[in-house]
């Protein structure tokens, strides 16, 4: 299959890019790494009349220190660049651990962090990871810019708060709190394929090593990154005993997620996997937090 014809612009500045988006509105799509949009165009599931290629906009590709130990990543920074970056490894170890798990090397060489987030695929690692890390996204348009917390950015299946004339420009991550540990676990039939289920956890301990805060989100478990707020409440103030972890996982599966059945797995099987994986991930996150 081949994509239908489209008008093509390859601006070199954000200013030019948002001008094209403002002019063409719903007819236009920004083209980031193209690793999700081009397959959709090849199958004609997406038929944008205008493509605004962001690949020549140097100002959208950067990794730099953020405030107070945080990190700031330009939306057009390629997965592979993030994967190999020393500052990311130092300041955002969960992102560092996530990158090699995203798709395959041939995809990571082109795919971008902003493209993956704007695509808002509930099975994408970065979508749930950005929510758990409490990231913020800088969104720009001709009218100006706004900052959107990751937890409010994703509206549903492949849907975000981005308006047609807006561009995701930058991802800002706060520093990890002291005494915190993290985990990302996925189950897929083939390594690097879309996961049947996945879970991301970030736990912070108080001075008695009880749970001060837990942020948990599931991948492929609903229409968006499924934040496990009920499970987090079970954990807060409690010691990380196997019993508490098991209860949190059971609460998450019963009330925080909404997986569906498809050709790859039934909803029941996904719930089973989510339970097992959540217990493993919380255990790993806790063990790491103790060491930090």
């Amino acid at each position: 299959m081949k994509p239908p014809p489209f008008e093509y612009y390859a601006p070199t500045t954000v200013e030019e890019a948002v001008a094209h988006l403002a002019e063409h509105g719903y007819d236009a799509k920004p083209l980031a790494g193209g690793q999700s949009l081009i397959p959709m165009m090849n199958f004609r599931l997406a038929q944008p009349a205008v493509l605004v290629d962001l690949n020549n906009i140097a100002e959208l590709s950067f990794i730099r220190p953020g405030d107070e130990g945080g990190l700031s990543i330009g939306a057009m920074t390629r997965h592979q660049t993030v994967e190999k970056d020393a500052l990311v490894a130092e300041r955002a170890p969960l992102i560092d651990e996530t990158m090699p798990q995203i798709a395959t090397r041939q995809i990571r060489s082109r795919g971008t962090i902003g493209g993956s987030l704007a695509h808002a695929d509930p099975s994408a690692e970065l979508v749930s990871v950005s929510v758990v890390l409490d990231g913020k996204f800088r969104v720009v348009s001709q009218k100006g810019e706004r900052w959107v917390p990751a937890s409010e950015f994703f509206l549903g299946l492949f849907t975000s708060v981005l308006e047609p004339e807006e561009l995701l420009a930058e991802i800002s991550l706060p520093p990890l709190p002291d005494r915190s540990g993290w985990s990302l676990m996925e189950i897929a039939r083939r390594p690097h394929d879309f996961c049947l289920i996945g879970v991301v956890a970030l736990v912070t301990l108080d001075e008695e090593q009880n749970c001060k805060q837990a942020r948990i989100a599931f991948l492929s478990a609903g229409d968006g990154p499924m934040q496990a707020q009920n499970a987090a409440k079970v954990l807060e103030g409690q010691p990380f005993t196997p019993e508490v972890i098991q209860e949190a996982a059971e609460v998450a599966v019963a009330s925080d997620i909404d997986p569906s059945s498809d050709i790859h797995a039934t909803a029941d099987f996904r719930r089973h996997l989510a339970n097992v994986l959540a217990q493993r991930a919380l255990t790993q996150a806790f063990e790491r937090a103790v060491g930090n």
């Binding site: 093509y8 397959p39 199958f43 041939q106 995809i107």
Partner: peptide, 27 residues
Amino acid sequence: CEHGVCGACTILFDGEPARSCLIFAVQ
């Protein structure tokens, strides 16, 4: 497959392996 799954169209783009079915020639 023309959607980035099979790997048959892999080329090196500036030295990095990439799917040539997921890049427009103009890029």
